[in-house]
Design a protein around this nucleic acid. Structure first.
Ligand SMILES: [Mn+2]
Ligand SMILES: [Mn+2]
Ligand SMILES: [Zn+2]
Ligand SMILES: [Zn+2]
Lengths: 155, 155
DNA sequence: ATTTGAATGATAATCGTTATCTGTTAATAA
DNA sequence: TTATTAACAGATAACGATTATCATTCAAAT
């Protein structure tokens, strides 16, 4: 799997903003930097907290609005969860499976070769035209299995 | 796939309520009947609307509370969507894939033999202990493909 | 430097869901 | 059958994540 270089990813995002006639503001840049450098899947509050370290006057609404823009131009993937806020993937903005540890809260991107066959089987069986999908697995990571680790990771 | 008999399914649900020392009230029975007879995946508002036809004094809170109870005893599957409310499956309360038509809004249960292999691949690759999962496909059904059908089905 | 429409920041509004509280009732046993 | 009582129903307030609103500021083009 191609490991994305954060700097290149940031430049990609900036280019996409320019292409779509969005302005490059310091607040947006701060959000984009966090999205590009995060290996995990940060929440809005996590992004907001980090942005305020460099730019203390930033509003939570600005973070939300930036994420809406990035979703619109297809440069961030939103993972909606019922509880406690959504999570965002700025490195792989296309549909892909996720693995959530209910112990520590971490969300990782597993590689699943066998997934492609499932979509093909679905199309053949139903005649649907598939546009997107969402696949989440919930379980306990190896680290949380051996000890009752109660520490949330939240990356 | 075993087509569930609504009456048997209703009796199952009632038994489960009794086993867990929950009371059988007319309002709960009305909700259970709807869950047992629905082939689709009704929303809370849809359930509420149907319940009120037979029992006009029913409160929306009662529908919510009944669904919470049914979730707790593992007899209904909740499908959380960000927009416009959750959907419920009272016939297959275990994890299974769903296929959502973004044209008419219908949600169906496809049979996907190849899905089991995906979970096995994931366990081998990550060492996680998998407890549950969620798989949704979003697309356009054959009916909505041939004409720009704008009628929501909402079953 | 000027202009101007888009973006920011602060806050109100939204909406599905949950909590609260009072009156009612299903379930148990006398 | 009636009495008892804890659970439930109904009405509504509260909640929380997200979105809308709007006056002020500023990025970008001239
Ligand atoms: Mn991801
Ligand atoms: Mn289903
Ligand atoms: Zn863990
Ligand atoms: Zn359709």
């Amino acid at each position: 799997m191609t490991m994305t270089d954060p700097r290149k990813r940031l430049d990609q995002m900036i280019s996409k903003l320019r292409e779509n006639n969005y302005r490059i503001t310091p607040q947006r840049l701060a959000v984009l930097r966090i999205l590009a450098t995060s290996t995990g899947h940060p929440s809005v509050e996590k992004i907001y907290g980090k942005v305020k370290k460099d730019f203390p006057t930033t509003s939570l609404a600005t973070v939300y609005k930036t994420l809406i823009v990035m979703k619109e131009i297809g440069e961030v993937l939103e993972l909606g969860f019922g509880e406690g806020g959504n999570r965002y993937d700025g490195n792989k903005p296309y549909p892909h499976p996720h693995l959530i540890c209910t112990g520590c809260g971490q969300i990782i991107d597993p590689d699943l070769e066998s997934l492609q066959g499932v979509t093909e089987e679905l199309i053949k069986a139903t005649g649907f035209k598939i546009n997107t999908h969402r696949l989440d697995f919930f379980g306990v990571c190896p680290n949380c299995q051996k000890a009752g680790s109660k520490k949330p990771v939240e990356n």
